[in-house]
Design a protein around this nucleic acid. Structure first.
Length: 578
RNA sequence: CGGGGCGUAGCGCAGCCCGGUUAGCGCGCUUGGUUCGGGACCAAGAGGUCGGGAGUUCAAAUCUCCCCGCCCCGACCA
């Protein structure tokens, strides 16, 4: 019995409670030299993580508690849709990866073990499919949803922004196995719902981008993203209706340009030193919508002139949809092809394919380069003078343009991808021979889906969205500890006795509490550390208030403080939610 | 992989251009004392292969070359 009591004592002490004097929480007063991104700075300053190499981080005890909170939320929601958790090896025989051709596909991104034919898994489609094949063989055993929350390895060329893009990172990935497209849709929708719940519970402001799943070989997919300067994707987003698209494919309603009544004759203008559209407009006193900007690309070894209205930017992804692979022409090629340098190129007299943005269709009295340095041409009529041109949507959407769905202004910004769900289809099951028999006894490849969440990104994004000049602002859902108990002067027996008492009571009440019991630091240090670490509630025990039987209850998020009677502290802490 | 920046005590930095005592400063750390509600004070200390190697020189943190590491921009991103 006694042994049991000691055991549970230790258990509770270690699991839910901590005294600052015993804890390893190395906070930093100054901003570390290597950190730029707010979440990165705060994760280092608050002692959540430490770097050990480029893109490689150790999670310290406080940070790991947050990892567990996020993981638990993910686990609960995955289990709720019937997911079953696996624990898979990170070390994989290379031959499994060769079955699907992905050693080649990943290329240098795949870490290869030097002294044995192993790779470090960057994801787990192959391993999960390996477990399904020849074991899950009947439609009666489907569907299955399998997931894991584990470390992945990718030899990123440039790790950045702390934990946001690392060479080693924690990822939840799930794989669904179904017997039909309809059933895949059901699995996909289940994940869609689960992901919304997960990110909602984590307190993240996110949005969803529909995207093509590219080389993964899937059809339908959605990306869960959050706005961030540390983001790697540029997206167009409409707050009003939720329209969101990668800027590579985003559309907008732009003002259509009107053909003028009468077409002038084509005429040449001397424009010395005029290179840009802005310079041309200033020089000729015209609006940029009267200009056609020229860009020369090489597609299939042949030059193609691409025309855009005014300062519209060519969207190379859209261009590639029309032309296949393209590259911009080199400066010396420009001269050879057109006879002029960049800034003086135009459609009139251009020999070769011309494709133009839809905005330019049927316009007249336009200005463009003359294919002769320091000259431009006016009076261009696209119907008369550029007869061979083909028209496509080629422009890059800009902030402030109207949403194609609801007409409200779009915002263009960078974002971080937190999660991605997509319908894989049979790419892996076919390559690896994961087959099932249907009701008629016919064999088919299992239809798969794949669903990922970057666990550390959830944490970093949460911090990006919830911090102030003092530090992190945790919600009760993710906070390492719910309550930060500060005893201002531990050398006062009244204070230390009271604080210890509250600490014990909170512990018994099941409240996770971090107790700053340091006697050698001043009150200011404790306040600042508490604000930096960001636990939702601070309970402050000071001499003056304690003499009237009161302690201070401070809410980190709002900085709101109020005095409450000593007897009510535990109850207040238990009931607090944020 | 291209471009830029940085590397000096645990952290943040100065010194380098223009070579020359014992390599400094702030914070942190150790010991003793005072203080105790918003990053206290006094006193005494500990702590350095100046990223590594080679070279120039009577002499290198400082000049030259090579290498390594980290950060930022770009390319890339199933």
């Amino acid at each position: 019995m006694e042994i049991f009591r000691i055991f549970t004592d230790r258990f509770f002490n270690n699991k839910d409670n901590m005294k600052f004097t015993k804890a390893f929480i190395p906070t930093l007063k100054e901003v570390p030299n290597d950190a730029i991104t707010p979440s990165h700075i705060l994760m280092l300053r608050a002692g959540l993580v430490r770097p050990i190499g480029a893109g490689i981080y150790s999670f310290l005890p406080l940070g790991y508690k947050v990892v567990r909170k996020v993981s638990d939320i993910i686990r609960e929601e995955m289990d709720a849709i019937g997911g079953q958790e696996f624990h898979l090896p990170a070390l994989n025989p290379r031959e499994i990866w060769e079955e699907t051709g992905r050693v080649e596909a990943f290329g240098d991104i795949l870490f290869q073990v030097k002294n044995r034919d192993y790779v470090l898994a960057p994801t787990h489609e192959e391993i999960m499919t390996f477990h399904a094949r020849r074991v899950v063989t009947s439609y009666k055993e489907l569907p299955q949803i399998w997931y894991q929350i584990q470390t992945k390895f990718r030899n990123e060329a440039r790790p950045r922004s702390g934990v946001i893009r690392g060479r080693q990172f924690l990822m939840k990935d799930a794989y669904s196995f179904d017997s039909s497209k309809e059933n895949l849709n059901k699995s996909y929708d289940l994940h869609d719902g689960a992901y919304r719940k997960i990110f909602d519970r984590c307190g993240l402001k996110y949005f969803i981008v529909g995207a093509s799943s590219g080389a993964m070989g899937g059809s339908g997919s959605e990306e869960f993203m959050v706005k961030s300067d540390a983001g790697e994707d540029t997206v167009a987003y409409c707050e009003a209706c939720g329209y969101a698209a990668n800027v590579e494919v985003a559309k907008s309603k732009v003002q259509p340009l009107q053909r003028e009544g009468e077409s002038k004759e084509v005429y040449e203008i001397s424009t010395p030193d005029v290179k840009s559209i802005d310079e041309l407009c200033a020089f000729l006193q015209i609006d940029e919508t009267k200009c056609a900007k020229s860009r020369v690309y090489i597609a299939d070894g042949l030059p193609v002139l691409v025309l855009m209205a005014g300062n519209d930017e060519v969207n190379e992804t859209k261009l590639e949809k029309v032309l296949g692979g393209v590259r911009p022409a080199h400066p010396d090629e420009l001269k050879a092809i057109t006879g002029a340098d960049a800034g003086s190129i135009g459609p009139v007299g251009f020999e070769g394919r011309i494709i133009a943005d839809l905005r330019l269709k049927d316009l007249n009295n336009m200005f463009s380069g003359a294919n002769k340095n320091d000259y431009h041409i006016g009076g261009i009529d696209f119907m008369r003078d550029v007869t061979g041109a083909e028209f496509f949507d080629l422009r890059t959407v800009q902030s402030g343009e109207e949403c194609p769905r609801c007409g409200k202004p779009l915002e263009v910004f960078t974002a971080i991808e937190l999660g991605h769900i997509f319908k894989l289809g049979t790419k892996y099951s076919e390559a690896m021979g994961a087959l099932f028999q249907d009701e008629k006894g016919e064999e088919h490849p299992i239809i798969m889906g794949s669903y990922g969440i970057g666990v550390e990104r959830v944490i970093a994004c949460y911090i990006e969205q919830h911090n102030d000049e003092k530090g992190i602002v945790w919600s009760t859902k993710l906070a390492p500890y719910k309550v930060h108990l500060l005893a201002l002067n531990m050398k006062s027996e009244l204070i230390s006795g009271t604080a210890n008492g509250i600490y014990e009571e909170l512990r018994k009440a099941g409240v996770e509490v971090l107790f700053d019991d340091r006697s050698e630091v001043s009150a200011g240090v404790k306040f600042n550390d508490a604000d930096l670490l960001g636990m939702p509630v601070q309970v402050i025990i000071g001499e003056k208030k304690l003499k009237t039987g009161q302690v201070e209850f401070k809410i980190r998020a709002t900085q709101e403080r109020r005095d409450i009677p000593l007897e009510e502290v535990v109850k207040e802490c238990v009931n607090f939610e944020f």
